[in-house]
């Protein structure tokens, strides 16, 4: 459902921070993306959720060539993707409930259509009693859970998460990973960018991607784990 062919990317006139990236994500698969800080993990995710354009190469999403897709059809593709941003990017003036509902609202749904689902989702991530709180009053971990709830509320076909367990304790981290695995079992393709080795042991990653010096290498999860343990 996602295919990159020899993709390169740069910010403005800067150096190419991603070079010759080629990979595919199939429906229902589970992927991890690792690499040192500054390697370009977030940038790669931005390409996938269509927030940046590549400077060369071809990207195809859900069977559509992005380069030839008219601009007004891109929102339709974005709605099939859920994103947990590294810096959360919650809207400060909206309540937790409103933040999480945003993707449904953007799709034109009425509150009666999503109210129950959003409440259920929020209590599942342990925020059932903070529906009307503003993000500014939440802890880092709570914000992260709101961001995750917002990413999954529209049942995306593709879920991208950038360091989703960076701010939470192992207990909540485990719950979040279980949520991702559940969604994956239901057919959602998941890609998580992370440094967290514990995640890697816990999830059924079909592939682990490693970004370094702008290039992407692929390893089968087992080989990668074995290698990491030996090092």
């Amino acid at each position: 459902m996602v295919r990159f062919e020899n993709v390169g990317m740069r910010y403005g006139l800067g150096p190419e921070i991603l070079r010759d990236i080629s990979f595919t994500l199939d429906q229902g698969s589970f992927h991890l993306l690792t690499g040192p800080s500054g390697a370009g993990k977030t940038s790669l995710l931005k390409l996938i959720y269509l927030a940046e354009r590549p400077c060369r190469g071809a990207i195809s999403m859900f069977g559509r060539e992005i380069a030839t897709t008219p601009r007004d059809e891109l929102p339709g593709l974005r709605r099939r993707i859920g994103v947990v941003f590294q810096e959360f990017r919650l809207l400060d003036h909206l309540t937790v409930f409103e933040n999480v509902s945003l993707p449904r609202r953007v799709m034109g749904e009425m509150e009666s259509q999503y109210r129950a689902e959003v409440e259920e989702l929020l209590s599942w991530v342990g925020l059932g009693n903070r529906l009307n709180a503003k993000p500014a009053t939440l802890s880092g971990g709570e914000k992260q859970r709101v961001a995750i709830a917002r990413a999954v509320v529209a049942k995306p076909e593709l879920l991208l998460a950038d360091e989703p367990t960076g701010n939470v304790d192992p207990e909540i981290g485990g719950r979040i990973m279980r949520l991702f695995t559940e969604l994956n079992k239901l057919g959602t393709c998941v890609m998580i960018a992370t440094h967290d080795m514990r995640i890697m042991e816990r999830v059924p990653a079909s592939r682990i991607y490693r970004l370094a010096e702008g290039r992407l290498t692929v390893a089968k999860a087992h080989d990668f784990m074995a290698q990491a343990k030996r090092a």
């Binding site: 959720y49 007004d72 929102p75 593709l77 974005r78 994103v83 990017r89 945003l102 953007v106 799709m107």
Partner: peptide
């Protein structure tokens, strides 16, 4: 920006 990336039309 956020609303745009969530899939809102212009």
């Amino acid at each position: 920006e956020v609303v745009h990336m969530i899939g809102a039309k212009d």
